[in-house]
Each structure stands twice: as C-alpha cells, then as structure tokens.
C-alpha cells in the first residue's frame, strides 16, 4: 500500500505542477475545436427544427430545406452564385496569371507594381464595394464622366440593370483579388527549374512555346489551389454585395450568404436560415472534398517518389 501511494504521489504532483502548461495547451485548442464542432452540429440541428424567432425543439425533417429551395430568393441567389462563381474564378485566374507572367519579365519597379496589384487585398470589401458603387453609379460615376465630355449617348448602367448588375460584383471582386493569384503564380514561376528553361531555349523554343510547353504545365498544382480558394471566397461572399449593390436592384444580385442573413435576422426564420447555411456548407464541401482527396493523392505520390 505504501508502495502504491509513493508511486502515485509524484504522478499527481507532476500533473499539478504541469497544470499551467496543460491549461495553456488545451484551453485554447479545445475552445477552437469545440466551437467548430459544436456550432456546426448546432446549426445543423436547428435546420431540422421548426425554429422561428427563437430556437425551438421539435423535428420537421427536411421541411426547412424544401421550403428554402422553393423560394425565389434562394433560386436567384444560387443561379447568381453559379454565374458569379465561374465568371469570377476564371477571370481572376486569367488576370492573376497574366499579371504574374508580365511581372516575370525582369521588369524594373517590380516591387512597386506588385504592391499596386495587391493593395486591394489589404482593404475591407465594405470600403472597396462602396467606392465601386460610386464609380459604377450612372448618375455620378464613369457614365456621367464620359457624358460630361460630350458623348451623351454613352451608357454604363450595369449597377441599376437587373441583367447586368451581377457583373459589377464580378468586376469588383476580380479587381480586388486578382493580386492574390498573381502572388501565388509569381512564386510558382520563380521556382521553375532554370535548367529546364535553358534546355528548352537551347532546343530553340521561343518565349510563347517556352511558356506553353515548359513553364505553364508546372503551374497547375498552384492553379488548383487558387481556384479552390477563390471558389471558397465566391461561395461565402457577403460584404462586397452588401456594400456594392445591397443585393439589388430588387433582388437581382442576391447570393446565398445574403439569403442566410435575411432568413435569420430580418425575417426571424431561424430554421430556414440554418437550412440555407447548411446548403452553403454543402456547396463548399462539393468543392473542398474533391480538393482534399486530390491533395491526399498528391501527398501519397510524393511520398512514394
């Protein structure tokens, strides 16, 4: 008995002595991990309840989902997401790649140029969205400016045009985040094996063939990463639309994140809002799960090689 007590005391003593470090390790990690898991499950659970202004117990199955999917708001928001997401991703990818290739031509003032293309990333979407809303407003923005020069028939009224308003969001989003793709692509271009480039040049490859055949193929893992991150941004876009169009004209530029907010805090339909949030998460997972699987395969291939 005395033996076990002697053996136990140092262990208990050690645990107490090491309590501060256990607390500093576990408390933040548990809070972070705990809120991610519990909040997700919480929202998921609410999406199956008849909750309106306050969370309620009860079970309505998939009713909230079918109700959300049947609303005009959600259908418009989702159509917008498909259009905005694809147009934005393609354009910002091409712009980013183009900028990176231009900057890779041993240009003077490269640092200044890089800072110019990246500065929008440092500013809030509320700020940039507000400024774009002024520039694109036909009454005070670019249209007025050109009209004042005497070209009276010039029209640039996408902001108040139901069919074109979504393209103002594409424009502002591409302007804001093309620099991100540029930064990643530039890093990729700089890490291309110089021997590979020299060998191609000795073989007589011109600049275009050099890029198309030798350099660009090495960039495609970066391309996938950029696409996934831009898609993640597109799916969760909220601030930019709030500041630029407010979802309008009418509801022409709604996106899923605005629908979630509208259900939860403006109509007081928490169940519907939660269902819409879960639908957003599912959209995101449709992008992220294939990406994670791809990353996994890549890592295994790299380990084998």
């Amino acid at each position: 008995m005395s033996e076990t007590a002697a053996a136990r005391r140092p262990k208990v003593f050690g645990l107490v002595r090491r309590l501060p470090e256990h607390l500093t390790i576990w408390l933040p990690l548990l809070l972070a991990a705990g809120h991610i898991v519990s909040f997700s499950l919480w929202t998921l659970w609410v999406s199956f309840t008849p909750s309106t202004l306050l969370p309620e117990f009860g079970w309505v199955g998939l009713h909230n989902y079918t109700a959300v999917l049947a609303t005009r708001n959600w259908r418009i928001a989702f159509d917008n997401l498909l259009l905005f997401g694809s147009a934005f991703v393609v354009l910002s990818l091409l712009t980013g790649l183009g900028l990176a290739i231009l900057l890779d031509q041993r240009i003077r003032g490269e640092n200044v140029l890089r800072s110019i293309f990246l500065y929008p990333m440092a500013v809030s979407f509320v700020v940039t969205g507000t400024v774009w809303s002024w520039l694109l407003n036909p009454g005070v923005g670019v249209q007025k400016f050109v009209n004042d020069f005497g070209w009276m028939s010039f029209r640039f009224d996408w902001l108040i045009n139901r069919d074109m308003a979504i393209w103002t969001i594409v424009m502002a989003a591409v302007w804001q985040s093309a620099g991100f793709g540029m930064a990643l692509f530039l890093a990729g271009l700089r890490s291309v094996d110089t021997d590979l480039i020299k060998a191609a040049q000795i073989d007589g490859a011109g600049p275009f063939r050099l890029y198309r055949r030798v350099i660009l193929p090495t960039l495609w893992p970066i391309t996938v990463t950029v696409v996934v991150i831009q898609l993640q941004f597109a799916i969760t876009t909220f601030d930019l639309v709030r500041a630029l169009t407010g979802g309008g004209p009418g509801i022409a530029t709604l996106l899923p994140a605005l629908v979630v907010y509208d259900f939860m805090f403006q109509r007081g339909l928490l169940g519907r809002g939660a269902a819409a949030a879960v639908l957003m998460l599912l959209t995101l997972l449709a992008v992220l799960l294939p990406y994670a699987a791809w990353r996994h395969v890549q890592a295994r291939q790299a380990a084998r090689a």
Binding site: A33, F238, A277
Partner: peptide, 27 residues
C-alpha cells in the same frame, strides 16, 4: 511536443479555416 490527441485536435482546429461564418452565426 507529443500529447494524446494532438493530431486529432489540430486537424479539427484547421477545419475552422473552411467553415463558413454562416454556420456559426446562430450559435
């Protein structure tokens, strides 16, 4: 350092990078 559950909890914490804010608004 190695401690029990370290990989597991780190994995969950990094999931937070992908979880949209809309999933956490209500809680």
């Amino acid at each position: 350092w190695r401690f029990p559950g370290d990989r597991w909890i780190y994995g969950v914490v990094t999931l937070g990078l992908f979880l949209p804010q809309q999933m956490r608004l209500l809680p």
